[in-house]
Design a protein around this nucleic acid. Structure first.
Lengths: 247, 247
DNA sequence: GTCACGCCCTAACCTATGTGTATCTTGGCC
DNA sequence: GGCCAAGATACACATAGGTTAGGGCGTGAC
């Protein structure tokens, strides 16, 4: 019933998950002009060395940031769900130091930098929330450093599954304890610094231990406490507001 | 000759290394009120779970951000040299998700959040540089993820030594190809996700290969090109201005 | 002066994890 | 109907890097 939600709806949900947003600010966000485009699967939106002139809002789908090393190895730094603006940093850093690509077909909103800058000037509180968002990003990177450097493969995968769950839930995109996870095991390997075979092993062990069930392109958490314990997961670093955390 | 540099001198050098700063802005920074305190070695300045009401400027010494895992393992996320404001994030993230501690005796300037916020409001361009600085921080974290996940121990240590060199040089704190590095091998291990023994092995190999010489609490780079190649080091991710990069 | 401790270094051992290869299933899509 | 990508499983093998243990040396404390 009613018209479809505006493309910025997911952005509002996202911002509200990390800071309060006033009615007036909400309206301003809805009015934020952007160009919406559908991008096919496994396609780069922005590339290493690019000098973007716009920011990307993930409206639908799943994207990731990654880098390819001289030897051809790939490292994924983050997954981005609807509501995220993965390259917000390009507002202040001219040159990209990594790639942003899709993992599945995505709907992306493009916001010119000039528009974004005017918007932030007109709504400094939202500017602060944007800054906050990039700081949370950094917090997630720190947690990934810890995850990769100090936890074994089983813990690593458990931790990543916890993070995805909490973030999707905060975005209103989890269905109970189940969420869509259209990420291949090879991609999980690129994110956790493991091999696909080892990701496979770890997932099987998580299943065997009754912590998760994983269907086709989705995950169901069978034992939330157990999974958190297995991954030493503590969501503090996501800096979500209590209501978004509980969801 | 002349009076000693104001405590904010290092901050000015730092900001100028990542963005242009006008004379007027420079004067405003010098006038920025802060409380200077000397902190002893191996002491926490801010702790995990704290809700700081001020930001810390490293004026002298060396600090690091780190987290301690349930099992007692420690992960260091970053090293901070004079001019850095390691907990700038606390301006927008209430609760600390990691610790900030000294590695050697430090001189630290404390700037109340309220002061910093007023300052940013009065000098929005410097506010943008601060934001930019936190974004560079995130870029460094991404590079560390890559380093730890995808490079072997030898490369990892080489990369870290390169990063420290370039940053210290941009801050005017390198002496030719030599720089002070009062970091123990155990701390290097905590930063690179390795064991002390393995850090030791890697340093020895770097020395054996004629890439570095390491004296007491200092490092001399014998073969800069070789060290960069060994660590696959590309300074793009530090987003330094050309003049700071060349230094 | 000497004692103790932190830091550095070394060596032997061992395990977690990656590599390579192979086979088999399943489901989606042309 | 058939192809292809993703996943599951299962070996054999290689090895980076962790663990444990012990020794030496410089330096600051007393």
């Amino acid at each position: 019933m009613g018209s479809p939600p505006p493309p910025s709806q997911s952005l509002i949900v996202k911002l509200e998950s990390i800071a309060p947003v006033s009615d007036e600010e909400r309206q301003a966000i809805v009015a934020l002009p952007m160009t919406v485009r559908d991008i096919r699967e496994d396609h780069d939106i922005v590339r290493d060395q690019d000098r973007p002139s716009q920011c990307c809002l993930v409206i639908e789908g799943l994207a990731c940031r990654y880098k390819v090393l001289p030897g051809g190895k790939r490292q994924i730094f983050s997954f981005h769900i609807p509501g995220d603006i993965p390259d917000l940093q390009s507002l202040h850093l001219d040159v990209m130091d990594h790639n942003l690509g899709t993992l599945v077909p995505c709907r992306i909103g493009f916001i010119p930098h000039e528009t974004a800058r005017q918007f932030i000037r007109a709504h400094p509180r939202i500017g602060d929330i944007f800054w906050r968002d990039t700081l949370i990003d950094a917090g997630v990177f720190r947690e990934w450093i810890t995850n990769i450097a100090r936890r074994d493969s089983y813990q690593r995968v458990a931790h990543l599954l916890c993070e995805l769950y909490v973030r999707l839930r905060a975005a209103g995109l989890a269905n109970g304890r189940t969420y869509a996870m259209p990420i291949t095991q090879a991609e999980l390997a690129d994110a956790t610094g493991m091999s696909t075979v080892h990701v496979n092993r770890s997932l099987q062990k998580l299943r065997g231990d009754g912590l998760i069930r994983s269907g086709k392109r989705s995950v169901t958490i069978e034992d939330w406490d157990g999974l958190q314990a297995a991954g030493e997961f503590d969501p503090t670093y996501l800096h979500l507001r209590p209501q978004a955390l509980a969801a």
